[in-house]
């Protein structure tokens, strides 16, 4: 028997049922108005580099540019249009459909409270210029983007993994990376701490959150039916119920015995 081939370029969860007559609605993309702040912003960007597409979506201006122009466009927006804060930047993985990433730079103008999203599309191995000289916040954002998505950035002062460990393999936020990790990820801590030879002792990860083994006395104890570690589980069934109370009968003599009669329940909080 042969296993059916499943494509590996997008291993994320997918809807198991889609009505084939279903046409997904779209968030409206409104044209940029003739005048106003956004029109001036767009004109400033158009003056310095090529704008592929520009529209307003849910009240924010979205500009598509070529990836080579990212530094120039952001510089104009920062210095001429006072978009002084890079509040967010990251990438979206479109490797399966289009063979690249869509980068977005989310900018904020503190004076007019306007937000702009500058977007560009980079191929898989194409590098973009770092905008770290313009915005210090790009320092960590670009490192995170490299770490999790694998988008290359040129001229970054300290390009190193930020989130994952230095010796990690793969870029976890790519669509081709499974949620539960590849083999390297699943054995990472065991390999690192105890060495590969301890894999047999420790065993594979339990990824089933609902699994409980009541006969496993090595790792679990049932409250009220406790047996020594590793004892056969039948003993737990046979043994008398051990009281689950704080005060033992034959307890330590120096501690005052607690009796429920003498305890006091407060009517209201002090």
């Amino acid at each position: 028997m042969m296993r059916p081939y499943t494509p590996k370029d997008n291993v994320q969860a997918k809807a198991y049922y889609t009505d084939r007559f279903w046409v997904a609605p779209r968030v409206p993309e409104e044209p940029v108005p003739e005048e106003g702040v956004y029109a001036e912003d767009l004109a400033a960007v158009k003056a310095c580099c090529k704008v592929l597409k520009a529209y307003i979506q849910r009240g924010q201006l979205v500009i598509y540019i070529n990836p080579e122009d990212n530094f120039e466009a952001l510089k104009v927006l920062k210095e001429e249009r006072w978009y002084e804060m890079l509040s967010e930047m990251s990438a979206v993985d479109f490797l399966a459909e289009r063979g690249g990433f869509e980068l977005f730079y989310q900018l904020l103008n503190l004076n007019t409270a306007k937000r702009i999203r500058v977007k560009c599309f980079v191929e898989e191995n194409q590098a973009v210029e770092s905008v770290n000289p313009l915005f210090r916040s790009a320092d960590w954002a670009e490192r995170e983007m490299w770490d999790l998505m694998g988008v290359k950035v040129n001229n970054h002062p300290y390009m190193k993994r930020l989130i994952m460990p230095d010796d990690w393999e793969g870029h976890p936020l790519r669509k081709s990376y499974p949620l539960e990790g590849d083999e390297f990820a699943q054995w990472y801590e065991v390999d690192k701490i105890f060495g590969k030879e301890a894999r047999d002792i420790i065993g594979p990860e339990n990824r089933d959150p609902a699994r409980i083994d009541r006969y496993d006395t090595e790792r679990f104890a049932r409250l009220g039916h406790e047996v020594p570690r590793g004892a056969p589980a039948e003993e737990a069934e046979k043994s008398e119920e051990t009281p689950v109370r704080y005060q033992e009968e034959e307890g330590v003599f120096l501690i005052e015995k607690f009796s429920p009669e003498r305890s006091k329940v407060l009517e209201r909080r002090k």
Binding site: W22, R26, V27, E29, R58, Q60, S87
Partner: peptide, 10 residues
């Protein structure tokens, strides 16, 4: 199934 598009909400 929300509509196709993107949004940034602060």
């Amino acid at each position: 199934r929300p509509p196709v598009g993107e949004v940034y909400v602060p």
